[in-house]
Amino acid sequence: MFEIPDDRKYLESHEWTTTDGDTVRVGISDFAQDELGDVVFVELPAEGDEVAAGDEFGVVESIKAVSDLYAPVSGTVVAVNEELFDAPELVNDDPYGDGWMLELEPSDTDEFEALLSPEEYREQTE
């Protein structure tokens, strides 16, 4: 069983999001990191870049697989987790914590409604 915390929402493509109201944090799920295996490289956008919901915003690579990362909501990138550049293993070790990828300032909070609840995501991964 993979960990699927109840405090966040998910995408079918295995990204998670949390929000504190002003900003949205994005990462990939425990299931996703396990499927990929040891992560060796993460490519993320620059601060200030605009992303639209559903767009590719980066890439995560293991030895044998490459996965695109999709933005859960539209907005402006306000922070990226630069620690991943030197320590991509954080994605494996702590996918919901230190392995986070970027923070967005959302332009349309309604977009959250379309995301999967933990229950819905759990059903998808089972």
Partner: peptide, 12 residues
Amino acid sequence: LQTREQHIRKER
């Protein structure tokens, strides 16, 4: 760095 190559990344 084989993820650059065709046997993994195919058309990309």
